[in-house]
C-alpha cells in the first residue's frame, strides 16, 4: 500500500545526519560505520567533575598527551560498528568450532607427543592471562580514551581479547580431557615460573599506565607486535615440526585476528604520528620503551621453547619486523 506513493513526493530532504554532512558534503549518504561512530561522544558542557578524577572533565582530551585537532581522524580501516563486528567474529568462531570438532573427532590431540604437550601447555596456556591483561587495557582505553572513533574499536578489541583468552582456555581444557589441571598448571607458571615473570611484570606495569594513548601503543603495538608473531608464528611452526600441528590449527583464529587488527592499530598510530611532531616524538618514545620491555620479557620463553641460539634469533627477528612496522608508521 505505502509503496504506491509516487517517487516524486518521496524526495529526500537530506542525505545524512548534519555532523556527517558537515564532514563529507550535503549530497553524500553516510555509511553505517560513519553514522555509528563519528562525533558520537559528548564533547562539551559537562555537569560534574568525576569523583574519581577531579583534575579532568568526564570526557577530556587532556587525559592523553597526544593532541589531535580532530580525534575522529583516527578511523578504523575495517569500518567496524557493532553489527558487522559481531557478524565477522561469529563467522570466524564458526570456523574455530569446526576446527575443534575436527581435532576432537580425529583424536588429533592424543597424537601429539607427550613432551610437546607439556611444552605447549607451558608456552601457550599462560597467555590467557596475558590476553586478560590486554582485555583490561583495551577496556581502560574504552573508558578514558577520547572520541568514539578510537574507543569503539578498543571496545571491540576488549571483547576480542576475552574471546582469545577463552579460546586458549578451551585448548587447555581440550588437551587435559576437560580437566582444569593444565590450566591450573599454566596459571602457576604465570605466577611463579621465572621464564614468565618478565611478561607478567610487563603486563602488570601496563595496568597502571595513565595515558590512554601510551597504553594503546604499549599493548596493541609493542606487546602484541612481539607476542603474536613469536607465539602464533614461530612457536606454531615449531609445533608443526614436533607433531603439534593440531595446536596451530586451533590457533588459526589468532593469526587471522592479528593480521586484521594490526591494520587498525597501524592506522591509528600512523595518523596520530602524522598529526604533529610532538605526537611523533611521544609515540616513538613510548614505543621504544615498551617494545624493548616486550623483547626482554619474551626472550626467556623463546629460549625455553626453541633453545638458546634459535630462541635468541627468533626474538631478534620478531623485534626487527616490529621495528620495520613502526618505521612505516613514522615512529621508529
Amino acid at each position: 500500500m505505502h509503496i504506491d506513493i509516487k517517487a516524486a513526493s518521496l524526495q529526500q530532504k537530506r542525505q545524512a545526519y548534519k555532523h556527517l554532512a558537515k564532514r563529507f558534503g550535503e549530497d553524500r549518504p553516510a555509511s553505517r560505520y560513519e553514522e555509528g561512530t563519528l562525533d558520537l561522544a559528548p564533547e562539551t558542557n559537562f555537569h560534574y567533575r568525576p569523583l574519581w578524577d577531579t583534575d579532568h572533565e568526564l570526557y577530556d582530551q587532556s587525559r592523553s598527551r597526544i593532541t589531535m585537532k580532530d580525534w575522529y581522524a583516527l578511523r578504523d580501516p575495517r569500518q567496524f560498528y557493532y553489527a558487522n563486528y559481531n557478524i565477522t567474529r561469529a563467522g570466524q568462531i564458526e570456523s574455530v568450532e569446526h576446527n575443534f570438532d575436527m581435532v576432537e573427532k580425529r583424536g588429533m590431540l592424543s597424537a601429539i607427543p607427550a613432551e610437546w604437550v607439556e611444552e605447549i601447555s607451558f608456552y601457550l596456556l599462560p597467555l590467557r592471562h596475558y590476553e586478560w591483561g590486554a582485555n583490561m587495557n583495551n577496556c581502560q582505553i574504552t573508558a578514558l580514551g577520547h572520541g568514539a572513533a578510537l574507543t569503539s574499536p578498543t571496545c571491540f578489541a576488549m571483547g576480542d581479547r576475552l574471546g582469545i583468552a577463552q579460546l586458549i582456555g578451551r585448548i587447555g581444557l581440550a588437551i587435559a580431557s576437560n580437566n582444569e589441571t593444565a590450566l591450573n598448571a599454566a596459571k602457576d607458571a604465570w605466577i611463579n615460573h621465572p621464564d614468565w615473570q618478565g611478561v607478567r611484570k610487563m603486563v602488570e606495569d601496563s595496568l597502571v599506565i595513565e595515558d590512554p594513548m601510551e597504553l594503546f601503543v604499549a599493548q596493541n603495538l609493542a606487546f602484541d607486535g612481539i607476542v603474536y608473531p613469536l607465539v602464533y608464528g614461530v612457536f606454531s611452526r615449531e609445533s608443526d615440526r614436533r607433531g603439534g600441528a593440531a595446536i596451530s590449527f586451533l590457533c588459526s583464529f589468532m593469526n587471522e585476528w592479528f593480521e586484521e587488527t594490526g591494520k587498525w592499530v597501524d592506522a591509528v598510530i600512523k595518523i596520530a604520528a602524522a598529526e604533529n611532531d610532538e605526537n611523533k616524538a611521544l609515540l616513538k618514545s613510548w614505543f621504544t620503551a615498551w617494545e624493548s620491555r616486550a623483547v626482554a620479557a619474551f626472550k626467556p620463553l623463546s629460549v625455553a621453547v626453541l633453545g638458546a641460539e634459535a630462541g635468541a634469533q627468533a626474538i631478534a627477528d620478531v623485534a626487527a619486523t616490529l621495528k620495520a612496522r613502526a618505521a612505516k608508521l613514522g615512529i621508529a
Binding site: 560534574y48 567533575r49 569523583l51 574519581w52 578524577d53 577531579t54
Partner: peptide
C-alpha cells in the same frame, strides 16, 4: 560531604 577518590573534591 561527597566521598571522592582523593580529598578536596571541588568543582566550579
Amino acid at each position: 560531604p561527597v566521598q571522592a577518590l582523593k580529598p578536596g573534591y571541588k568543582g566550579e
